[in-house]
Write a protein that binds this DNA or RNA. Sequence first.
DNA 1: CGTGTTTGACCAGCGC
DNA 2: GCGCTGGTCAAACACG
Length: 256
Amino acid sequence: MFGVDEHQDCYNTTTSSIFDLLMFPSQQQHQQQRFITCSSLPESSSILSDHLINNVPVTPNLSSISSSSTELAADDYQEDHQHKYKKQLKPNKKKQKGKKEPRFAFMTKSEVDHLDDGFRWRKYGQKAVKNSPFPRSYYRCTASSCGVKKRVERSIQDTSIVVTTYEGVHTHPCPLTPRGWVGVQPVTTTYGGRVGGGDNGGRSHYGDYSSSLFSTNNSLQEKRFWNSSNSSLAKDDHGLLQDMVSSRMRSDLIEE
DNA sequence: CGTGTTTGACCAGCGC
DNA sequence: GCGCTGGTCAAACACG
């Protein structure tokens, strides 16, 4: 259990949807659909968790991994989000239980916590994770109309693995990668120790990182995994994903 | 000055 | 009901 096993929606290893969804929303309506489908699984199936951990090696180029996304649940989400984000202190800070945003997680072998995905993220919180020496950071997309969130935490089993969980979908094009970012940026991450205490229960916050637009990977060798109880992603699938990603990127370059 | 981070506090859900 | 925990807020702060 890498700490992300609770609420992620299901994804098929073969869908390749993650990258598609993240990278080419406008061109991937059908993929969006799939996404929606995933996210709209019956609430009753509370265990929607087949986590998405792809075994795709991440080259720096892949930093565009999550460019813009769909408009899908955005309506719902935005409404909900904007509601509480702006000054709704007392009443119901939390999201309605019934409303689940499309969510997926992936694990990345990386030294940096905050993997670049082409979007601008604003950190809005950080928490110590139970049974883990590493904090979990919370980010929101800085686009005003976009309520996408993501959580970043390190696996306690393999501290070289960063677990990133996206929640929601971007309702705007990627600000930095109109058609897919293929550049590389150096990392600015600093990994600090514990710097602060939290509130009750020993939950504490850490100052650990710098999130910025392109704080991606020094680690040339990031790896994405499928995490889930059956963490075995067929090799074919791995290859498929890799191919898919690389071909995507190629076509993207061409488009540029 | 605008943008993003830090961090203590608050709130709600959940399990016992 | 209570305590624990995850998620979020927002003021203060840092930085370019």
